[in-house]
Design a binder for these strands. Structure first.
Lengths: 160, 160
DNA sequence: TATTGTTATACTCTATAACTATA
DNA sequence: TATAGTTATAGAGTATAACAATA
């Protein structure tokens, strides 16, 4: 028995519930933050991926974000009309676009990262630095063991 | 400096993202489970609360679950037609209902708890018992520090 | 006058499938 | 024939606000 004595061997299942509850809360706080930039969490996710992988197509992007191709159209339309993303035709396959951040898009991505760090700080304010690192390690191990991709994130939305 | 050396002092914000990602995954797995019982996660949530607090009104229930009163009507209608929940008029205030589990409802609640434990086991299979307990402690501390209620759970839904 | 439960309506978000242009 | 992008439409889920019965 590894249990330290303060936790019953048949403790009710709570980690799943807490993860779901905290995850919804974290997503809502991030939504609050990017809303102040005039962005949705989905738009922020597109900026993040384009920052790391310039030149991807709408189809690639849709697959990485776990959404349908047809939804990507309006998503990129919006970012393009904000001047944050630019479409150009691929030289090798004229059916597909090369998507890239504009200079303004790179600036906005930096804003998004600041928002993410501020959200993170607000979430974990009650933890010590060691607790934060341990938690990060456990969550990473969980995500890896469950085969969750670094980008794909079906649930990153507001939910109130 | 408390950092152990393996984590940079300016590590990017990831705990919020991981919480949101894992939370969505946990909710989706729980949804899979209760779907096999013919229930939605919301219906399962109602059963859970009624198991602990028999006799509450629809309004109380709506507030605890963080949803609107008007949505509760169809939710209870469904559970009533499944024979899992019973409405009776309150003796002291004939505007409101007393909501209670039926015998079948109690049986189904036991099924839901089994599903929750199975989901939990699947989620945390990669962790040692000590890691599980530490993680549980950290998540509890987070939820408490953020003022998250034990019942209210705006994000417990499918998301695919 | 305020509150519980109810209903009707409208709105948001999303997937599906049909369409075009290129390959 | 298959694929990238596009469009139109329909469906699910939701909140909003007006209503009846009771306090």
């Amino acid at each position: 028995m590894v249990y330290g004595g303060c936790v019953p061997a048949h403790r009710p299942a709570r980690i799943g519930f807490l993860l779901s509850q905290l995850g919804a809360h974290a997503a809502a706080r991030f939504d609050d933050g990017v809303s102040s930039l005039g962005l949705t969490p989905q738009q922020a996710g597109v900026l993040r991926i384009l920052g790391r992988s310039p030149g991807v197509s709408q189809r690639d992007l849709a697959e990485r974000l776990g959404i349908v191709q047809s939804r990507m159209v309006a998503l990129i339309d919006g970012l393009e009309s904000l001047g944050l993303v630019a479409r150009s035709r691929s030289a090798t396959d004229r059916r597909s676009y090369r998507l890239e951040l504009t200079d303004a898009g790179r600036d906005r991505l930096a804003d998004v990262r600041r928002i993410a760090e501020r959200t993170e700080a607000g979430l974990t304010a009650a933890l010590t630095a060691k607790q934060r690192d341990d938690l990060y390690g456990s969550l990473r191990m969980l995500a890896t063991s469950l085969g969750l991709d670094e980008d794909v994130h079906i649930g990153f939305r507001a939910d109130g």
